[in-house]
Design a protein around this nucleic acid. Structure first.
Length: 588
RNA sequence: GGGGUCGUAGCUCAGCUUGGUUAGAGCGUCUGCCUGUCACGCAGAAGGUCGAGGGUUCGAGUCCCUUCGGCCCCGCCA
């Protein structure tokens, strides 16, 4: 260890107005340029870069020491701020008008050559960045992302505080509950054979906080889900969790809109007009083939089942007869697609679960149909009209059950929009999707499962449907969508013990099981539960959008790979047998 | 669980189709020269378990099998 001079300024701070000041800077050697009799060093900290000049006649002994400097050495440099010679200013740098002419140099730590350069535009594989995350995090662009994240935390906290919300921490070690995502389990040492779970969300706790009378709660909180990963999904992620008492949907939506407006406005200067447009789940599906529609571009889905209900083409008529739909999208200007491109789209549709893909190519007055043997010219004309297709367009048609056919079309819509470059990247399209179905039938489990979660209230007018036709019941649930990504979701909850018990029954959870798994909540509801509802924001995704990142990993300091590994510290990892014994666990 | 794609020098990649001298390039690194560079310049050098294991073959970076890992997607994600 050595004594060294503490910095008087940061590396992004000095300007021409500081000339003749004696200063000390500390930081990392970003670049060194040894011109023989003169050495330049770019010194970097998180605030910026300042050029240090070492001249033999003025710098003396420290010039000799400067010869040994290499990339990423940590140094402390003292000297005077000088103006650069005429014509030598670097206009692309904020500090580019000055140099610090060194008179003292202390090497605080040497460094090995990093496996990749510490700069914004690097071309390396992501696993390397993740393995050396501490070096990746030195890169200005990554630091900027985390600064945006920091600003977003602060704005969110301030907003909810000002609006009367109370920040309360809920347990990380909690009871494992059925329903929903797979839990991460934590074995109990004290209680033989028993396990905690890490929260998928603080859902039950926040509802109980409402029973406790806290009225308005929020928390910026880690959630854990042991499911497969994606570019926008990590096993542990951060939510802004919100719950309010004595509210309806409009109250929650309004608070959320305020939060989003403030966050996007004050963190990245994007003005978001509120209130956001609303669309029912049915509308979203039937127009965009998605429950999180990207409305930055049109190419809406069109359903034309009635046009082809009597078609001689059995694929069409049978689909309608079986209660399904025939629908399509119109890709503008894609009639030039080659056979192999169309085969590629057909393959894509099939991997998404379609039986096949029928297409129409419109060129001039003629319409070429891939099923022209069976589909009449009259029918193709009507289909083209239904989708408002023009000459030069390509129509893609999918048949099948409502949900499935529309979902596939939704994927094709995004695929074609990407291929045809139809997505304007400067738009911020926020959108509420409401009136989700309450339940959906799980073929895997042969029972109904909650679309949102088991505590979501049905729409009041749909409560009678719970007995007659549960699949038709709609939920008091809402999702906030930004440019085709769900960034928040919530609902008005059930606050009545009897209705909650009924809901569990519909989900195939019998009374004994409900009591065992959720007894504490049902019990709490018996002691004066206020009507309540809330929402949770996908914080990482929001920051991803704010920073223009392509992956959630770019806005998380220490993310995991798509196989849920941390390459830097190599977790998960094996543990000592002794640890397992203490936990009464054996690996099989 | 499934599909796609990638893995060769510190890094980014070429070589693989059609097996055959000593596996190449750029960047970086190291050494020398160089007093106004900022992608410094010039000259030279070092640097490889071709992800791992097995197989076919006289011979494998190249062909086959298995496996590990990265990324994207489907399923999954109340």
């Amino acid at each position: 260890m050595q004594q060294y001079k503490k910095r008087t300024h940061t590396c992004g701070q000095l300007r021409a107005s500081d000339i003749r000041k004696q200063v000390t800077l500390t930081g990392w050697v970003d670049k060194r340029r040894n011109l023989g009799g003169l050495i330049f060093v770019d010194l970097r900290d998180r605030h910026g870069i300042t050029q240090i000049a070492f001249e033999p006649d003025r710098s003396g002994a420290c010039y000799e020491l400067a010869k040994s400097l290499r990339s990423e050495f940590v140094i402390s440099v003292s000297g005077s701020v000088v103006s650069r010679p005429e014509g030598q200013a670097n206009k692309s740098m904020p500090t580019g008008e000055i140099d610090v002419e060194a008179t003292e140099l202390a090497i605080l730590n040497k460094a090995e050559t990093p496996p990749f350069p510490i700069e914004d535009s690097i071309d390396v594989t992501e696993d390397l960045r993740l393995k050396y995350r501490y070096l990746d995090l030195r890169r200005p662009i990554v630091q900027k992302n985390l600064l945006v994240r920091h600003r977003a935390y602060q704005v969110a906290r301030s907003y909810f505080d000002r609006n009367g919300f109370i920040e309360i921490e809920t347990p990380i070690l909690m009871k494992s509950t059925p329903e929903g995502a797979r839990d991460y389990l934590v074995p109990s040492r004290i209680h033989h054979g028993k396990f905690y779970a890490l929260p998928q969300s603080p859902q039950t706790y926040k509802q109980i906080l409402m029973v406790a009378g806290f009225d308005r709660y929020f928390q910026i909180v880690k959630c854990f889900r042991d499911e497969d990963l994606r570019a926008d999904r990590q096993p542990e992620f951060t939510q802004i969790d919100v719950e309010m008492s004595f509210v309806d949907e409009n109250d929650v939506l309004a608070i959320t809109e305020g939060a989003i407006k403030e966050m996007f406005g004050s963190v990245i200067g994007v003005d978001t007009p509120i209130p956001f447009p609303r669309m029912t789940h049915k509308e979203a599906m039937e127009q965009f083939g998605s429950d999180k529609p990207d409305t930055r571009f049109e190419m809406k889905v069109g359903i034309f089942s009635e046009v082809v209900a009597e078609s001689g083409f059995r694929v069409f008529s049978e689909a309608v007869k079986n209660g399904g739909i025939v629908a399509g999208i119109c890709a503008p200007g894609a009639a030039t697609y080659s056979r192999s491109q169309l085969d590629g789209l057909t393959d894509l549709a099939k991997t998404l679960g379609a039986g096949g893909l029928v297409y129409l190519k419109l060129q001039g007055d003629s319409i070429e149909c891939s099923a022209s043997k069976f589909v009449t010219a009259e029918e193709t004309k009507k289909i083209a009209e239904a989708l408002k297709a023009k000459s030069g367009d390509l129509v893609l048609i999918i048949t099948g059950p409502w949900q499935k056919a529309l979902t596939i079309l939704g994927s094709l819509r995004l695929e074609m929009a990407n291929r045809l470059n139809l997505i304007p990247h400067n738009k911020w399209n926020f959108l509420w999707v409401t009136d989700f179905p309450l339940l959906e039938f799980s073929e895997e489990d042969k029972r109904f499962v909650a679309v949102h979660h088991p505590f979501t209230s049905p729409k009041l007018e749909d409560i009678p449907l719970l007995d007659k036709d549960p699949a038709k019941a709609r939920a008091r649930a809402y999702d906030l969508v930004l440019n085709g990504t769900e960034i928040a979701g919530g609902s008005i909850r059930i606050h009545d013990s009897a209705l909650q018990t009924k809901m569990f029954g519909l989900l195939g959870i019998n009374e004994a099981e409900a009591k065992m798994k959720f007894g504490f909540l049902l019990e709490a509801f018996k002691y004066g539960a206020p009507p309540h509802g809330g929402i949770a924001f996908g914080f990482d995704r929001i920051v991803m959008y704010m920073t223009g990142s392509k992956s959630i990993r770019d806005v998380i300091a220490f993310p995991k790979t798509t196989s849920a590994m941390s390459l830097m510290d190599d977790s998960p990892s094996s543990v000592d047998l002794k640890q397992l014994e203490e936990l009464h666990i054996r690996i099989v």
